[in-house]
């Protein structure tokens, strides 16, 4: 469904993503893993249209990102790392604004917002300003932002970072539930979480792909049971 072809991104002289190729199938939950600075966020930013690639391209069902960016943006819900939000806005106003931009029609809008507030447990904070919220609530507003307009692709950059264990479990549930009908690409540093949720993982290090397979296949290939050790071996953690 999503084809990433020879994607390269330079920031000045620094090569953040180096000729990366991989594919995400429809309905798949793909874990994009790698140490900090490996280039995960850069790939997301290119996929969501925030950055443009130095060379290479991304295709979403034959639509090239350089030509059909607006069409692709409509299909993608994006949660950036540490969801940076408008501090002075009320949660309700913010989600209302995003719903308008995403073209949720007026009749459905109230229902959609209610359902999302339930799904992300935002009911108590809908009429608070965003800067009053705790980290966990902000993250959930970010997830609600990503889900608005019912996009069929979700891009979640560390959706569980900074959350407490209960919230992590809740978020993981939400991801798994959504994964039944949506294509999801997400990253995390909690490897057990990747094991529990992902259909397949792509591991990158210093902008290059070092593994692209199911976790079970990686175990067999490297003859090692612990996914943590596999990860560290592949990304030169030792």
């Amino acid at each position: 469904m999503i084809n990433i072809e020879n994607l390269t991104k330079y920031y000045g002289d620094l090569c953040a993503v180096d000729h990366v190729n991989f594919e995400i199938k429809k309905g798949e939950i793909l874990g994009l893993l790698g140490p900090n600075g490996a280039g995960k966020t850069t790939i997301y930013r290119i996929l969501t249209g925030y950055l443009s690639p130095t060379s290479g391209t991304i295709k979403v069902e034959n639509d090239n990102i350089n030509e059909h960016l607006m069409k692709i943006k409509k299909r993608i819900g994006y949660l950036p790392e540490e969801a940076p939000l408008y501090h002075e806005m009320l949660v309700y106003d913010y989600l209302n604004f995003v719903a308008d931009i995403r073209g949720v029609n007026k009749i459905d809008k109230n229902n959609t917002l209610h359902e999302l507030a339930d799904l992300c447990s935002l009911n108590e904070v809908m009429h608070k300003t965003i800067d009053e919220l705790s980290k966990g609530y902000r993250q959930r507003v970010g997830i609600a932002h990503a889900l608005l307009g019912n996009p069929d692709i979700l891009v979640l950059d560390e959706p569980t970072s900074g959350l407490d264990p209960n919230q992590i479990a809740e978020t993981r549930d939400i991801i798994r539930r959504l994964g039944k009908e949506k294509t999801i690409i997400f990253s995390t540093h909690i490897l057990s979480e990747a094991e529990a949720t992902c259909d397949r993982v792509v591991i990158i290090d210093e902008g290059k792909i070092v593994a692209d397979d199911t976790i079970d296949a990686l175990r067999k290939e490297l003859n090692e049971q612990s996914f943590e050790i596999i990860f560290r071996k592949l990304t030169k953690g030792n």
Partner: peptide, 11 residues
């Protein structure tokens, strides 16, 4: 604050 990233990735 980085909200530009959110705004810019909306359609």
């Amino acid at each position: 604050i980085g909200s530009y990233e959110l705004l810019h990735t909306l359609p």
